[in-house]
């Protein structure tokens, strides 16, 4: 079981968390201004990288807060977690 560092509570076991999909996909400010392809991308296109993935997690059975994490999809290691709104940290693979 992974140990996930909640930015608010510290390291907690994986079963306390829920996964929230790829991070940094902000809902467009004016959806009506998006053409169909852009909205389709927002809905469905994901990077799915082999390597470092920025993703959303929620400490669902803890503080309840959402946060972002960089996780390596090959090693399954959490490299860093950070608060919603903070920029994606620069980290080498």
């Amino acid at each position: 079981m992974l140990l996930i560092p909640c930015p608010y509570c510290g390291p907690r076991p994986e079963i306390e968390f829920s996964y929230g999909g790829e991070a940094h996909l902000a809902r467009p400010r004016d959806p009506a201004a998006c053409d169909d392809a852009a909205w389709g991308d927002f809905l469905y296109a994901r990077t799915n990288p082999k390597g470092i993935h920025a993703e959303r997690w929620r400490h669902a059975h803890g503080c309840g807060r959402f946060f972002n994490a960089l996780r390596h999809t090959v090693s399954d290691q959490f490299l860093i977690t950070y608060r919603i709104g903070a920029p994606r940290p620069e980290i080498a693979a």
């Binding site: 902000a26 809902r27 959303r56 929620r58 309840g64 959402f66 919603i84 709104g85």
Partner: peptide, 13 residues
């Protein structure tokens, strides 16, 4: 409830 929290925390803080 989870979806409401999601929008409040991440899209419309």
């Amino acid at each position: 409830l989870d979806r409401m929290e999601d929008y409040l925390q991440t899209e419309w803080p």
